Simulated assay, not measured.
Amino acid sequence: MKNVHNEDYASFVYFHESTKGESGRAVYINPELLSRFLDLIDTRQSSGQNTARLINAIKDIKVDANGLSTNSNLSNGFEARKDCGPVEVTYTVYQDNASSHRGPGAYITKLKRLHKDEQEEDKPAGLYKATLSNRRSWDLKKEEGCTIPTAIGSIGAIFNGERYDAKKTANQFGKYFESNSQVKNKDLNNQFSLYYAPSYIVDALGIWKTAKQKRIASNAGPKQLAEIFKASLPWGTTNTEGKAKYHWYVFGEGAKILALSLKELSAITTNKKLHEHQFTFIDPKENIGSLLIELDKLGARADKTNFQIAQDNLSSKLHQIYKADDVRPKALKAQNSAWNTLDGTVSPIADQYKKSLLSNNQTTFVDVLSKANKAISTGWA
């Protein structure tokens, strides 16, 4: 069967020890999806139950691949999708042997977040102004233009287990600002900007399952955020000294959206820089080294201790070791002592991670996941 996706299926690994084809169809997965797999579960809750549920649901592909519980791609008869709780799994089924893959079986190529908002309770992606109400919750007002309304800004979105929730996002980010001594009251002034960025606004990161998609601006996401940054660039003297005008706090998957928007910004601006913008990362689900490279190109500020990763946030930590060799020397080692400390932590764990991937062709994805988690948990200071 022809490999129409130009995927290197030969590099895929078995998903689980029980999916090697001895009982049911063999199930393989792209090992590059490891970091995305951890993004889609909260390893800090339910004592690993979320992980176990997702693993078990994916294992079932060995018996129902192209069966009644899957959605097949009618234009491509061997591609199918399966909903596994809050995650949609896309895979390609091969019936034959060929050099482009490892033999008959199901090959998992994509993992995407499912946003189940049938009642259309959530707000669309975009820029909002959050204001603290008398009830100690944060009210959201949609900003129609590209003007950043406050000095403190945030990028990200909170997923509540089934859907994204803008109100919960504002309240959780607001609570962070109120309790963080580094956020000055006079800067916050009971209000902050929120670029609400659920992962469904980028096709590669997730799927919107309701009709509300029709109400989302076509440029919502990285392009719109890039336009907002562009609109803030000074036309006169550039402030390269002293305090930044805007301080952005980037939470979780918001780092993915920021990374894409910085590339968009580079394409639409030439001689203007983000000198007046400062960025702090909280549990970023993106490689900090990669982000530093792009921020440095654009003249933005992100130095010293402007990253915070919770001790139990395995997903964020995995992003720092993932493909670390490509970005660590240029980005981390060129920075100050705080970044060098991070590099000293990342380097040995990245080496262990690479060895676990290259062990042998019987390696399973779940085994690599377990080894990566163990290496991170024991090796991260």
Results as ranks from 00 to 15, higher is better:
I321M: 09
N6W: 06
P234N: 00
I282M: 07
T280N: 06
S137W: 03
L233H: 13
L74P: 14
K245L: 15
S100R: 08
W138N: 05
G77L: 07
Q213N: 03
K374M: 04
I158H: 13
G221E: 05
P329Y: 04
N373R: 12
E17M: 01
Q308R: 11
Y200Q: 08
N373S: 15
L332S: 05
R113D: 08
K333L: 14
A170I: 12
S370Q: 10
V202Y: 02
T43K: 06
L74N: 02
D312V: 09
T305M: 02
F229S: 04
K245N: 09
F307L: 02
H275R: 10
E241H: 15
A381L: 10
L233D: 04
N160W: 11
L33F: 05
N185K: 13
L40K: 00
L40C: 06
I108T: 09
L314T: 01
N306E: 14
A98H: 13
D83G: 04
K116N: 02
A231I: 04
K20P: 09
L34D: 02
D64N: 14
G153E: 03
G153C: 09
A211E: 10
Q311T: 15
W138Y: 06
T341P: 00
A52S: 15
E22H: 04
G77Y: 13
S316M: 00
E22P: 00
A381M: 03
G24I: 02
Q311F: 10
V346N: 12
A130K: 10
A204F: 06
K256W: 01
A244W: 08
P234G: 07
W248C: 02
K323I: 04
A350C: 12
G126K: 05
K304N: 10
A151L: 13
S75F: 09
Q191I: 00
D139T: 11
T92S: 02
A197R: 01
S72Y: 04
N287I: 08
H275D: 07
R102T: 01
K186R: 08
Y195R: 07
Y94T: 04
L358S: 13
R135T: 12
N6C: 04
G24M: 10
G236P: 10
T43Q: 06
G344E: 09
V13P: 01
R135I: 05
N30T: 06
L127G: 02
Q172N: 14
Y14K: 00
W380A: 04
I309H: 07
K112M: 12
K184P: 05
L225Y: 06
Q335W: 01
N180E: 13
N185C: 01
W380R: 03
Y353T: 11
L262R: 12
L258C: 12
A372N: 03
A170M: 05
S137H: 10
A10E: 10
I257K: 01
K62T: 00
I207T: 12
K374R: 14
T364E: 06
V183H: 03
A231C: 07
A375D: 09
Q191T: 06
T269L: 09
E286A: 14
R215Y: 06
L33R: 03
D60W: 10
K323H: 08
